[in-house]
């Protein structure tokens, strides 16, 4: 922004520090499309051989990757929908509506949104066993959504807080019920928030590993992270090229989503951390 200083030293320093990441990204893509010779970093000729897991099992006995992909979509999409719907309503109620125990719920919300959720995995595991949702997609979706919820409500509340009260008052004066005001006048104002939260929770769920691994490890509910880890575990020899190819396939949707929507996504970091 300011022109008074040289930028070259900054470039050099940043580039050096970013080097490990850049190398990883570069070889992530290069290795999957070339013949890799062990012990050499020079890319070999182009090949699609590494991608054969798309039409045959990656390892004998492994399920097809497409079932896992579908499960991942259901998992991430389901989580996103639940988080969006519950946060959009609860955030509005906490921001705008008078109701009993409001301040109690607000305090609870702030505490929960910082609360370290992974600690609960043991009892959540036992609860799902008891209520019979263990090893189902529904179960792990509900858990993921519940754990995302405090942050989601918090962020949505932040967005609602920024909508002028007068819009709401004008709507009420115009004869609209509070529900209509919310649905037709306020929701359209917080679309950036909904978009950010939706993208955020989709990406989170898409990449999630521990929850599905523990709560839904079975073949029917297997998501890509669990699938990929299973492939990694079944290997005695680390076949990095295979892992990377599966990984690239796995990560492609999130990278694409990120590149398209990163401006929208960044809203979450503004909305979520306001004091």
């Amino acid at each position: 922004m300011t022109k008074n200083f040289k930028t070259l030293p900054v470039y050099i320093l940043l580039s050096v520090l970013s080097l490990p990441l850049v190398i990883m990204y570069a070889y992530l893509v290069i290795d999957t499309f070339t013949v890799t010779t062990p012990g050499s970093l020079v890319p070999g000729p182009f090949t699609l051989h590494n991608w054969r897991f798309l039409w045959e099992p990656a390892k004998p006995g492994q399920a097809s990757i497409w079932a896992a992909t579908l499960n991942t979509f259901l998992f991430a999409g389901g989580t996103m929908l639940i988080v969006l719907m519950t946060s959009a309503t609860a955030g509005y109620a906490l921001s705008r509506l008078r109701m009993p125990m409001r301040s109690f719920m607000l305090a609870g919300l702030i505490m929960l949104h910082a609360f370290p959720t992974v600690t609960l995995i043991i009892s959540v595991f036992l609860i799902l066993q008891i209520i019979g949702l263990y090893d189902t997609l529904i179960g792990v979706i509900l858990v993921r959504a519940a754990l995302d919820l405090p942050l989601g409500v918090w962020i949505m509340k932040g967005f609602y807080d920024n909508v002028p009260w007068e819009i709401e008052m004008a709507g009420v004066q115009d004869g609209a019920s509070r529900f209509t005001v919310w649905w037709r006048l306020i929701l359209p104002q917080i679309q950036p928030g909904l978009a950010a939260l939706g993208i955020f929770s989709f990406l989170q769920a898409w990449s999630e590993f521990i929850l599905p691994q523990v709560l839904a490890p079975g073949a029917n509910a297997q998501v890509l992270s669990v699938y990929m880890q299973a492939v990694v575990k079944s290997e005695t020899q680390m076949d990095f090229t295979l892992f990377k190819t599966i990984g690239l396939f796995y990560t492609l949707p999130v990278v694409v989503i990120y590149l398209i929507f990163n401006k929208k996504l960044m809203n979450i970091y503004g909305g979520g951390t306001k004091g």
């Binding site: 002028p164 007068e166 819009i167 008052m169 004008a170 709507g171 004066q173 006048l185 359209p188 104002q189």
Partner: peptide, 11 residues
Amino acid sequence: VVFQNYALYPH
């Protein structure tokens, strides 16, 4: 009511 900031519905 006419509000100070007019409160027109932006969308």
